[in-house]
Every structure is written in C-alpha cells, then in structure tokens.
Design a protein around this nucleic acid. Structure first.
Lengths: 336, 336
DNA sequence: CCTCAGCATTGAATCGTTTTAACCACCGAG
DNA sequence: CTCGGTGGTTAAAACGATTCAATGCTGAGG
C-alpha cells in the first residue's frame, strides 16, 4: 500500500531528489555511477513515476483526446488505431471518446479533456463547435479536425474529399449504364453526408437522362440501412432504383442484407448495383463483396496526430487543411 | 493563454481558496450568497479545474483503464461501450488500450495505467499477468478480468462460459445431422479458444460416429478466416467438413467469403453449415446471415465496472467470479 | 598558492487543488 | 454575563515531480 516517491528513492540512493529527477529526465547531466546507484534504488523499491505530479508541474498532460462520431463504425476505429500508433511514437497516449452523434456527449468530452489539460484534441465534430474550440485554443489547447474541414480555416484539419468520393461513386454507377440512382444516407445535417450527396449530384449533371433519388435515414447504421432496403424491396420492381450509393458501408451492408433476404426478389448487382463508402474490412467479407469508396483511415488518424504535434511544438505554424483523395474499390456488388 | 486557477477565482470573489474549493465539492458547507458569488466568478473567468492537481491531492485518478485484445473486433468495442456508460454514471472516464494480442503492448499499457494511478483496471489478458496484477494491487490498484476467469480466483472476473458456448455450437451442428465438424480458430494459447474447443469436444463425446477436426489459425481475424476457407475449398469435396464451428465471427465471415467466392463450389448451409461466436452486428448483416453464439458484450463491460467500483469502495469485499451464459442465435448459415 | 572554469549535486520554490485545524462572530441557555 | 455551540470562513500544510540558482569540488593555468 505504501506508495514510493522520488523522496524514498533519493534517500535509498543517498542523493537528493533533484538528482533522481535528473537521472530520469536528463541522464547525461549525472555521473555514471550515480545513475547506476539511482537506477538500482528505483528497481529495488519498485518506484513508479506519478503522472499527476509531472503534469501539474509542466502544465499539460501526455495525452491526446480523440472524439469520434461512432465507435461502432470500423472506419473510426481505424482512425483511432492510426492516431494511437503515431502518438505512441511520441510517448503520448490517446483517450478515446465516443460522441455517438450527440451534442451533449460531445460537449462532455471536451470538458473532460480540458480538465485533463490534454496535449491536444482530435475531433470529428457533430455540432458546430468552432467557438468552443477557439476558446480551448485560447487556453492553450490546440485541436485538429478529423474527417471534416474547418469552414473558415481557423483550425487544421485532415479529411478526405467527400465531394470527390461521391462523384467517384456515382460516376462509376453511371458508367455501368445505370440510370435510376438512389442515395441512401443521413442524417443530412452531417457534413460528410452533405458532401457525398453533392458529389453525387455533380456526377449526375453530365447525364441528363439519369435521375437521382435521395432516401434520407435517421442514422447511417446497419439497422437503418436494412430498413431502407426493406422499403425498396416492397416497391414494384419497375420503380426501384437500379443502383444505390450508400453513404457508408454500414448502410450498404444493411441494404444488401435486406435486398437479398426475402427469397431473392432482387439480385445484386444484376438488378441493383451497390457502392458503399469507407471500405471497412467487413465490406470485402460480405458474401456479395461490396464495392466501396476507400478512405485511408489509419493514415487520417496518424496524420492528424502529426500535425497536432507540429503545431504544439511551434505555435507559429498556421493552420493547414490536409485533404486526401478517396479511391474507388470495385468488387462484385457493382460488377463481375 | 493565461490559465485561471482557484486563486484567481478566490480573489475575484473576495474569498479564500478554501472556500472556492468548498463551493465545488461541499456546497452545503457554504453560505448561499457566497456560493453565488463564487459561481459568478467562476463563470466570468472561465475557470476550469485542473485535474492533475486534484489527482495529485487524492492519490488516484478519475479514470479506469481498459485493455482489450483487439479493438477491431466489435465484440470488444461493445464491451468498451458498456464499460464507458457505467463509468460515466460514476463520473469516471475510460481509457482504452489495445494490446493486439501482444505481450509487449499489454505490458506497456499496464505501466501507463500505473503511472496514471488509475482508479482501477479492466483487462482481457493475453499473457499470464497474474503476478503483475498482484503487484498492482499491492500498490493500491485493483483489477477485474474481463472475458476470462481468474485461475486461482485471486481476482474478480466477468466472463462468459466458453465451454458451454462451444458445446452449444457443436450440439446444434450435430442436431442438424452433421458429422464431419471442423473447429477453426486460434491461436490455441488463448484461454477463450481453449475453452470453446473443449466445449466442442464435450459435445462430440455423445456422438461417437461424428468426428471433430481442429484447424488452428494464427489469429482469429477475417483475413485468417479467409485463408482457412480457401484451403478448405481446395480439398476434394468428400474430404471437406460438413459443418464448421468458427472461434469468432470475424473468422466465420472470412470463411463464408472464401467458401462462396470462387464460383460457388460450396453452398452454405447446404454443403457446409457455419456457426460463429460473439454475434457481432455484422454477423446478421452478412448475406448468408450467420448463426452465432451470442455473448452479452455490453453487459460484460458494465458489470466489470460495477464490480470494480464496489471493490474500490469497500476493500474487504472478496473477489467474485461472475459468469454469464451464452446463447445460440440461429440464422441462415445453419438452417432455413 | 590562488583563481577560475567546469562539472556534479543540492535545496528550495513551484505547479493547483483539497483538507484540516483554527478562528470568529453570534446566539441561546444557564 | 458567561459558556458551549454552531455555521461560515480562512490560512497553511500537504500531494510528488521538476527546475533553477546556488554551492562544493577538482584540477589546470597563472
């Protein structure tokens, strides 16, 4: 139960606490035999640095806060992995918060991170929290937007061009000769959805005799995708779309399941082709492997951490907007 | 940039720092108008408590550490969600660590949590870390094992009866009239795998004319499942199993994909029936929806936190072993 | 022999919060 | 009029690590 502090180590090694600290943080300043003596004492006593005391001293924690929209979505899990790996290289840990597309929860996490004086914040925002982030920055906490650009460029961001992604998806469907396209996704309040839809519209513009239908759902989850799919199956065959662009792979998997479940009234891709978004691992594992728009998810996470650290090291660096390009991955759901 | 402390608040409100602290922690001890004055000062200055200083004072952090074997597995993500929700009720945060079935990483996270003086640790262990956890307990940090029982009952644990789960799965397959069963999973060093296999063998015991084949894989992931599946497809038809019990749903999805990919040489469930484990969301979303052994994942997480908090509050409570029963969910991959 | 440079080490101050013991003013009971 | 509360407030002492200015020591140069 007795917790050992540097004081105990110092006594045991016959040196002052300052020296013990130096052994741990600036060993080159300490004579070699002293280092050894102190190390020995540390091991014998089983000394463990108290992080709280360290943090208190230098004002900030060795932790990065990450807030994502939905932990159940492997896309975000991958971002977290990428961030974690990059952070670990710099000796930092990542605390993961799940806002679940909920303003309340999102805000609670920001409060928590602020109390923890985190090194910085990575956030995939739901509500418009620019003012809040600005306030945080004034208190010395920097943030980087993830999977989202900063409207007025006041913050750095790492994102993927969702408009291009949407265009890519729909262009592909049109190239297959499809003409009754449906976009399934939502809620349409979220930037990602808006952009992907905009890209879809953009692609449509060049094909005047094709039509785009928008089917908004409450959340982009497997369950909602399944619902939307069931509704489509219920329509008379001639009024069904012949291709669907799903806002993410969770939705496309739900759709796929609904379309194929009830005695195969609909064949994929013959009757309806499907393109999803994110290219999560499970997309390839679906029995009709899903075409998808791939985003470099782990790379997004690691890049965001990289930028954050650079800015933390040199406050004069202006905010940067990094935008990756998405990539179309063709699988059976839209082709051979 | 100026960081406000309780001292600033005290000055502004014309009281002492002790009073400010009392307003936040024991408001009933403070006169009503003083409370209001202090609250006003807090808001005007935008004061945010410094967590590090609090922690330093009372010795432990308001955080629970959670180490899981694989963040990419939705089963663990769900456990994390359950834990997070329950912890939030108690005003605690959860820090998630991903050991990735790697002794090194696992140990690093335990170091980190110890430095952070976390409130307690939840861990789904890979290596045998009982000695380490015992040491932690002597330093005042309690732990609860998750998805794993404590061999000598020195620690509390929350798990699911994997032997029963394995038996459930194989009994089901046998009841369908299958007789050449394969178990696909691994590595067989992990307790969960060992137990599920043991359960499978137990079920086999009553059916002397059925045979169990064990196919060990390096990791229970989608990719490894796909490999194993491809190997099975390559065999001559008569030497293939007629049913597979997959160690988890990641594996079963990989298998499913491999079996159905190459021009449908194998039909599921007609030629080979498949039962998975965990019942992750995606299992139901697969085009041949997967039968699976369901575990109450979120409940596991929340229960573990509950136990941890009870033990932290009253150190005299002896370790408890909580074991949930798994449940068979039948879908198309083993039936109609 | 003295001084100065350079190295190793020390001691004290500091970070921001919580808690405890002491204190004060006031009131009611004796 | 005094004594014992009581409710409200304060000042000071922690908590444990880091840093910085000061100090002691050694040996080289004058």
């Amino acid at each position: 139960m007795a917790t050992v502090s540097v004081k105990d180590v110092a006594r045991r090694a016959g040196v002052s606490v300052g020296t013990v600290s130096n052994v741990m943080n600036h060993p080159h300043k300490v004579a070699l035999d002293t280092v050894e003596r102190v190390q020995a004492a540390i091991n014998e006593l089983g000394f463990i640095r108290n992080d709280a005391a360290r943090q208190l001293r230098d004002g900030r924690s060795k932790t990065i806060g990450l807030v994502v929209l939905d932990v159940r979505n492997p896309f975000f899990t991958e971002i977290a992995r990428g961030a974690e790996d990059r952070a670990a290289e710099a000796g930092l840990a990542v605390t993961l918060g799940n806002s679940d597309e909920n303003t309340q929860r999102e805000s609670t996490y920001l409060d928590l991170f602020e109390q923890q004086r985190v090194h910085g914040i990575l956030i995939s925002p739901y509500a418009d929290i620019t003012p809040r982030l600005r306030a945080l920055r004034e208190h010395g906490i920097r943030s980087v937007l993830v999977d989202r650009t900063s409207p007025d460029a006041t913050f750095s961001s790492v994102s993927v061009d969702d408009v291009a992604g949407g265009a890519l998806a729909v262009t592909h469907l049109l190239a297959l000769g499809r003409s009754r396209i449906a976009f399934v996704g939502g809620p349409l309040a979220i930037r990602q959805m808006i952009d992907r839809l905009a890209g879809a519209r953009q692609a449509m513009a060049e094909h005047p005799n094709a039509a785009l239908e928008v089917i908004e759902i409450a959340a982009s989850t497997v369950l909602e995708g399944r619902r939307a799919g069931a509704a489509i199956v219920d329509r008379p065959a001639h009024s069904r779309p012949d291709a669907i662009f799903a806002a993410n792979d969770l939705v496309s998997m739900g759709l796929l399941q609904a379309l194929m479940m009830q005695g195969l009234p609909v064949r994929v891709p013959d009757d309806i082709a499907i393109v999803g978004y994110d290219d999560i691992d499970f997309a390839a594992a679906a029995v009709v492997p899903l075409s998808s728009i791939r985003q470099p998810s782990a790379l997004i996470g690691s890049t965001a951490v990289k930028i954050l650290l650079e800015e933390a090291a040199d406050a004069s660096i202006p905010p940067r907007q990094i935008e990756f390009q998405p990539e179309l991955v063709v699988r059976d759901s839209t082709g051979r």
